[in-house]
Design a protein around this nucleic acid. Structure first.
Length: 477
RNA sequence: CGGGGUGUAGCGCAGUUGGUAGCGCACCGCGUUUGGGACGCGGGGGUCCGCGGUUCGAGUCCGCGCACCCCGACCA
């Protein structure tokens, strides 16, 4: 019997999202409110994301390490903005070994403080710089309103932390990592992101500047999919990270930090999904191909399975799943693997054995139009081409959708209309009061200032004063 | 922490004027099925959110708690 139909219509988007996460077997709710259990299928997706990013981090000269999960509370007091930003959402350990602790320990919400403390011990000379360390970890922020993958109390991420001799070098690192994220998002996750600078109110607590990649979801809301911070000397001064320069002068380091999290999984779901469920980009899908064998009896089964073996032997280079469950009909399996986002389905039945063919069904093009017969000869080449087409196809679709839903707002009325159903780009004077008014009137927040659009000047879309910054406004997750 | 809603089987729900708990899906067994969500027969599974009250009798009525969901405030 069919399960209830999904619908990804804008007004049902949140419910659609929850249903997809649960039914595609990505995650489940934990007994602790706000925490999430990542199931094997979701974790496999995360591992693919990690592998690709990790390779990029290493290519840009970073190494991995691990820092403690518990951080003395006093560390947070050392940087004024940081403590203000994170105090409200800290989980705090007060007891250990049956005794009350002398100093409470925070479960890390992010590791600038503890890493800053260690860097201060490790860095003595200009010869020690730069230090470029990344850690894959879980962190905890006591969020008030959790949403699977998008905002859970505990989440998995990577956080890069670097220390440099000069501002310029730190800035270069900050932008380099922003680009690493943007490239990954586009080339691997098939999500075309916009990159730019955050406003003062939206930046990371303790940063001089925060840069972000912003992705458009299927309901046109924005999702901040990754951030890269130039921390200036704020943390270096708070934690005394100093080095002796070639001139024998003592100088504070310039530090950066940058991170992406399991939120990327949420981004992939909401950027590509449709009424049938998940649509995974082939480069990240835990299974790139699912094979559904079809037979009516034992005689058919043996010839079909023999053919399946031959096909699978040709496709060893791909992540492949053979769905040989006998208690389910093919139709049921089609729906299930579509829900779970597998990019390419190969159906092999008696007719295929006879005709030396394989029926291929593309996840990105639902129904008959996405189906075609492949020859069993040179199958790997055909499949590789198809997977590339799918990868490119969903990127192109996401790009088109994004571009269709971003509009220039010239007047305040424009802005109000546009953010109801998309992103508005507009001149902005830089005054937080204008941001606040727009948020109060429309629920839209500033996303980021696109690097490429920062020439010329105009009048603030809100107050009409002279403006030199152009920024995106939209509702966001 | 404000505003709204919901708590009955794993999930989704029904349960009439109060009479001792049911349906669909899922699960288990057997058989028939299998190219777009198969069917038959048989089965297992319940602290009806908790506590107190009214009553001969409470899933149902009353009171007090609690939990969860949605919309805000906060946020990667």
């Amino acid at each position: 019997m069919a399960e209830e139909k999904l619908t990804s219509q804008k007004e049902n988007f949140s419910e659609w999202y929850n249903q997809v996460v649960l039914r595609a077997d990505l995650a489940d709710y934990s007994p602790v409110r706000g925490c999430m259990v990542v199931k094997p299928y979701g974790w496999a997706l995360w591992e693919n994301i990690k592998a690709d990013l990790d390779r990029r981090f290493k290519e840009t000269g970073h190494v991995n390490a691990a820092f403690p999960m518990l951080i003395p509370m006093s560390f947070f007091e050392k940087e004024k903005d940081h403590v203000e930003g994170f105090s409200p959402e800290l989980a705090v350990v007060t007891h250990g070994g049956g005794q009350e602790l002398e100093e409470p320990l925070a479960v890390r919400p992010t590791s600038e403080t503890i890493i800053g403390y260690m860097y201060a011990k490790w860095i003595k000379s200009w010869r020690d710089l730069p230090v470029k360390i990344n850690q894959w970890a879980n962190v905890m922020r006591w969020e008030m309103r959790p949403r699977l993958f998008l905002r859970t109390a505990e989440f998995y991420w990577q956080e890069g932390h670097t220390a440099h001799a000069t501002y310029e070098e730190a800035q270069e690192e900050t932008l380099q990592m922003l680009n690493v994220y943007a490239d990954f998002a586009r080339d691997v996750a098939a999500i075309p992101v916009l990159k730019g600078v955050k406003s003062e109110t939206e930046k990371f607590p303790g940063a001089v500047n925060t840069y972000s990649i912003e992705a458009m979801m299927g309901d046109t809301k924005a999702l901040q999919a990754g951030t890269s911070h130039n921390l200036g000397q704020n943390f270096a001064k708070a934690f005394d990270i100093k080095y002796l320069s070639p001139n024998n002068t003592l100088e504070y380091c310039w530090t950066t930090s940058w991170g992406v999290s399991t939120r990327l999984i949420g981004a992939i779901i909401m950027a590509h999904g449709d009424d049938n469920g998940l649509v995974l980009p082939p480069r990240l899908a835990p299974y790139q191909i699912v094979i559904v064998p079809i037979f009516k009896n034992d005689a058919e089964k043996s010839v079909v399975m023999e053919c399946v073996d031959k096909v699978m032997a040709q496709l060893k280079e791909f992540r492949i799943k053979l769905d040989d469950r006998t208690e389910l009909t093919p139709g049921f399996k089609y729906h299930e693997w579509e829900l779970r986002g597998v990019p390419l389905r190969l159906e092999i039945g008696p007719k295929d054995v006879e005709k030396n063919s394989v029926m291929a069904a593309r996840r990105d093009i639902p129904g008959k139009p996405g189906k075609s017969f492949l020859s069993q000869d040179n199958l790997a080449d055909q499949v590789r081409d198809l997977l590339d087409e799918i990868q490119n196809g969903i990127l192109a679709r996401a790009e088109k959708f994004r571009d269709e839903n971003i509009h220039e707002a010239k007047t305040y009325d424009d802005l109000k209309g546009i953010v109801e159903n998309g992103w508005a780009e507009a001149w902005w004077c830089g005054d937080p009061a204008c941001e606040a008014k727009i948020k109060a009137d429309t629920k839209a927040t500033t996303r980021c200032m696109n690097f490429e659009h920062q020439h010329g000047h105009g009048q603030c879309v809100c107050c009409g004063k002279d403006a030199e910054k152009k920024i995106y406004f939209s509702k966001a997750y």
